[in-house]
């Protein structure tokens, strides 16, 4: 038990130190410093929302369009950033392998955590602002909103954990990643709800853990004014599978990682 507790203490220390280091190297101490982490998702959510508002009018399928886009785009930004940032993460951070208490899984986790915290801060900020401007409903059920967010994040992290080692094994991955995340937008549930598509397509979409998470979040925000479909089986099985695969691949890559 003692070793478990001390392991946990070391782990917490390492994660904290890596977070600070990452925030410093990425954002520095100038002007707003680490608050930049929420600026990108914030601007994306707000501006794309406005764009849709101008192009499509105030409402779609019975919900405020800005609120709809914001609920979809903020998680998408998290997904895209987290996934793109996990590419080549090991070779970039290789010099940290000089300290044995740091593992390569920590790198992936820390980068993901920063994106997640940035996304949550942006969500909170945009939400409060838009509620004030009466463009966003007061969430119908915050519990489902959080549950959906957790499901969405857990799957995103497990995917990062697979992509990070894969990107070290093959150069091709790095090149096809941006286009893949773009093509994957429909299965992220960002701009489409399950209830809008045909029953056949619905079944297909519900095999995406991200869609399940997104539907939960939308249920949490809009409540019964939209029809939502979701379950926990697909996200949990999908996440567990990718986590197991990711840990295995990380171990494999670590054995051959070359440190200057």
């Amino acid at each position: 038990m003692a070793s478990l507790a001390s392991g946990w203490r070391i782990q917490r220390r390492v994660i904290g130190a890596l977070m600070i280091r990452e925030l410093l190297t990425r954002f520095g101490r100038e002007n707003i410093g680490f608050l930049w982490v929420m600026v990108e998702p914030l601007l994306f959510g707000l501006l794309v929302g406005l764009l849709w508002r101008v192009a499509r009018g105030p409402e779609e399928h019975g919900v405020t369009i800005i609120a709809f886009v914001v609920t979809g785009y903020l998680p998408l930004t998290l997904f895209r950033n987290a996934v793109n940032r996990s590419v080549r993460i090991f070779s970039v951070n290789a010099s940290l392998m000089y300290h044995r208490q740091i593992t390569i899984v920590d790198f992936v986790f820390v980068r993901f955590l920063i994106e997640m915290i940035g996304g949550m801060m942006a969500y909170l900020f945009v939400g409060v602002l838009l509620i004030y401007l009466d463009l966003f409903p007061i969430p119908y059920n915050v519990g489902w909103l959080i549950a959906g967010w957790v499901v969405y994040c857990a799957f995103t992290f497990s995917l990062c954990l697979v992509l990070a080692p894969l990107s070290e094994m093959s150069d091709v991955l790095e090149k096809i990643m941006p286009v893949t995340t773009y093509i994957a937008i429909p299965v992220c549930g960002t701009f489409n709800m399950v209830s809008w598509v045909t029953p056949g397509a619905q079944q297909f979409l519900l095999y995406s853990p991200l869609v399940n998470g997104m539907e939960m979040m939308r249920h949490g925000v809009f409540g019964p004014s939209v029809t939502t479909y979701y379950g926990f089986t697909v996200p949990i099985v999908g996440t567990m599978f990718l986590l197991a695969l990711g840990f295995t691949l990380c171990r494999k890559v670590r054995r051959t990682l070359v440190v200057e």
Binding site: R9, I10, R13, V14, G16, A17, I20, R21, H99, Q101, I102
Partner: peptide
Amino acid sequence: ARFISRIYG
């Protein structure tokens, strides 16, 4: 130095 002091506690 801060980083080292953090990870080694």
